[in-house]
């Protein structure tokens, strides 16, 4: 078929297009994926027993704010990487900022703690299971964010996959924080971050395979 005929074919298949598809697809992915993660957490892990007391502590909200801020920045990164030619701009800064804040808090907590208490601040009671559980909870969200990305037009599949993975990991971590009893900044700075990095790396590896269009 000649190209001008092909153009006529495409133009005939045109018609009005809704705007805002990129953000809508990602919001859907987070909504359904987050609900899946919440169900998994509620059924298999359970909300922490002392949640009623914990919500009165500032550290509980800081613990929640860390993944929520990262999820916000990852959302912006993912929606930009889903659109050809969209620039990331200041997004990398917004991704690094929450990590820098938590690391600074962790450094302060470790520096001011008694030497023999530092190990407990870093490892808590649950360091062996925390990253793995976050990665498991991120699975339903990751399916959603990769689906969202797949229907759009990512031209840098490794970065786009990583952003989809980080978004999934951050949402899953916010859900996991409702179960997890740890409250020390050094623990969050290490094991929460490790948990979020597992789906990030998985997304980066899957990106080039799944996100072709």
């Amino acid at each position: 078929m000649k190209t001008d005929e092909f153009v006529s074919l495409l133009a005939a298949g045109g018609g009005a297009v809704e705007s805002g598809t990129t953000a809508r697809r990602h919001a859907l992915a987070i909504g359904w994926g987050g609900m899946g993660a919440m169900l998994l957490m509620a059924i298999f892990l359970g909300v922490r027993a002392d949640i009623a007391d914990a919500v009165r502590l500032p550290m509980f909200w800081l613990k929640l704010a860390f993944p929520v801020c990262l999820a916000g920045a990852a959302f912006v990164a993912a929606t930009r990487l889903a659109r050809p030619g969209a620039r990331l701009g200041q997004t990398p800064l917004a991704l690094v900022a929450p990590i820098a804040v938590v690391w600074a808090m962790a450094a302060y907590a470790l520096a001011t703690a008694a030497p023999d208490a530092r190990g407990a601040l870093l490892l808590g009671q649950t360091w062996t299971v925390c990253p793995g559980l976050i990665a498991l909870l991120s699975l339903p969200v990751l399916v959603g964010t990769l689906w969202a990305m797949k229907g759009l037009a990512p031209t840098q599949p490794i970065l786009a996959g990583a952003a989809a993975g980080l978004l999934a990991g951050a949402v899953a971590t916010a859900v996991y924080a409702l179960h997890c009893p740890e409250m020390a900044a050094p623990f969050l700075a290490t094991w929460y971050l490790a948990g979020m990095l597992i789906p990030t790396v998985a997304g980066a590896l899957l990106g080039p395979r799944l996100l072709r269009w």
Partner: peptide, 16 residues
């Protein structure tokens, strides 16, 4: 539909 009204066309078309 990945093209949005607030973005320039050149980088979009070029990236594709």
């Amino acid at each position: 539909y990945t093209f949005e009204a607030d973005q320039p066309l050149t980088p979009w078309a070029y990236a594709i």
